[in-house]
Design a protein around this nucleic acid. Structure first.
Lengths: 144, 144
DNA sequence: TATAATTATTTTGTACACTAATTAAATAGG
DNA sequence: CCTATTTAATTAGTGTACAAAATAATTATA
């Protein structure tokens, strides 16, 4: 039962990434890059460390995503004068527009995914999922 | 709401892979490799094509997983004499034991994940998830 | 029967997740 | 003040996901 849940959660996650990447392809940005760009858009001047705390991800992975975002001129990084280990990250002109544009695509893309699922069901689903995630986090912290 | 569902599904999937890989580390096999190994274990002599049909994955990805499994002596591939494009895949001696051993680990590892979730809730969760996945599959097939 | 189309699989190239090791800067303790 | 530790971020290396192209064998067709 739990095994089935895990298997299907993975499957659904995989499908979502597939779906979103196909839609994002023409915008020349990836799903992971977009997630990070959004966080930067909401908090200009944010540091990599702060992004890490907001998004439960890996620092090495984030480093790569950021350099690709910079390479494609979506962001710029400015060395902090007070603490030279830190870089403040800013979204480039025009990229805010991209964020908004994607929100529209995303809405259109995912609205159909709740077909046949009622509001109440979705709410219950989220509650259970939250509990499940909490258990996962505990389990990971517990052992290692 | 849907967005939140997608986000959390992804998060949960990521956490599960993290959890499993930490447990599998000492067995010197990865989660993806194990999934494939299990299919081969159930159907000795299976071909890559047939594995692809059972597991909704990518042929290039599978090709890589199979060569790593072979490199680590978990499987062997024998060229089919009737159709030389095909290789029949067999599990190596001792690897069946690994499959069983992992099932035990997996059970221990994931039983705690349903803490605070009733049987009924889990069932409902799975039903909604199934519908969600079905919608995703439709959406992917529809557009491309 | 020669060639075109199809099929099974691998290779190449890009992006990402994760671990371990490294670099560079800041801060603490003696 | 100088070493030791901590902190922020990058680099190197392995594995995975996916698209596109290549390879090799089989089957269909002109």
């Amino acid at each position: 039962m739990v095994k089935e849940m895990c298997y299907k959660l993975n499957k659904s996650s995989m499908l979502y990434k597939r779906l979103m990447s196909k839609h994002l392809e023409r915008l020349n940005i990836t799903y992971s890059q977009l997630m990070v760009l959004r966080v930067i858009n909401q908090e200009p001047g944010i540091t990599a460390k702060e992004i890490l705390m907001q998004m439960d991800t890996d620092k090495a992975t984030l480093s790569g995503v950021l350099s690709r975002l910079q390479r494609n001129n979506y962001i710029s990084r400015v060395k902090n004068e007070k603490d030279k280990r830190i870089q403040n990250i800013y979204i480039s002109k025009g990229s805010e527009k991209l964020c908004n544009e994607v929100s529209v695509i995303e809405k259109a893309c995912i609205s159909d995914l709740v077909d046949g699922i009622t509001m109440g069901e979705a709410e219950m689903f989220l509650q259970i999922l939250d509990r499940f995630i909490e258990n996962q986090v505990n389990k990971i912290e517990e052992k290692f």
